[in-house]
Amino acid sequence: MSFTKTTEQDSKYNELENMSISQLLININTEDKTVPLAVEKALPQIEKLVEQVVIQLKKGGRLFYIGAGTSGRLGVVDASECPPTFGVPHELVIGLIAGGETAIRKAVENAEDSTTQGWRDLQAFNININDFVIGIAASGTTPYVLYALNTCTENNIPTGSITCNASCPISLAAKYPIEVIVGPEFVTGSSRMKAGTAQKLVLNMISTTTMIQLGKVKGNKMVDMQLSNDKLVDRGIRMIQAEIPIDHSEAERLLKEYGSVRAAITFYLNGN
Rank of each mutant, 00 (worst) to 15 (best):
D113F: 15
V133N: 01
N130C: 03
Q45C: 12
E101H: 15
G160H: 04
A111I: 07
A148H: 09
D247W: 08
T209M: 06
M19T: 09
P177L: 01
A148S: 09
A68T: 14
N126I: 03
V202D: 12
K41V: 04
D230F: 07
V39P: 04
G95I: 00
P245L: 11
F132P: 00
G271F: 14
T151R: 15
P36K: 07
T7I: 08
I28N: 05
D224K: 08
P158N: 06
S190Q: 07
E17K: 12
F3K: 02
L57T: 02
A174I: 02
G72A: 08
I206F: 15
I127S: 07
A174F: 08
A38G: 09
L49M: 15
T210Y: 10
P143F: 06
F132V: 00
G215N: 10
H248L: 07
N128I: 00
Q9D: 03
I94H: 07
N126L: 04
K59L: 09
G189H: 09
G215T: 11
N155Q: 14
L269E: 15
E112F: 05
F132N: 03
Q45D: 12
A103T: 04
T197Q: 07
V39D: 03
Q9C: 06
N29S: 14
A173H: 13
M19P: 09
P36I: 02
Y176A: 00
H248W: 09
S191Y: 13
G87D: 11
I157G: 03
T70K: 05
F64H: 04
L232T: 08
P84K: 09
I157Q: 05
G95C: 01
E154P: 08
E101C: 10
N220M: 13
L122Q: 00
K12R: 10
A174D: 01
S114I: 14
K5I: 01
E91W: 02
F132T: 01
S171A: 15
E15Q: 14
I212F: 01
T70P: 01
A124M: 01
G87N: 07
G140D: 01
I240H: 04
S171V: 06
N155W: 14
S20I: 05
A103V: 06
K200W: 05
P143H: 06
I265Q: 09
I170P: 01
S228A: 13
I26W: 03
M211P: 00
S228E: 07
R120W: 13
E31G: 12
G99L: 08
Q213Y: 06
M19G: 09
A195S: 10
V223S: 04
G219C: 12
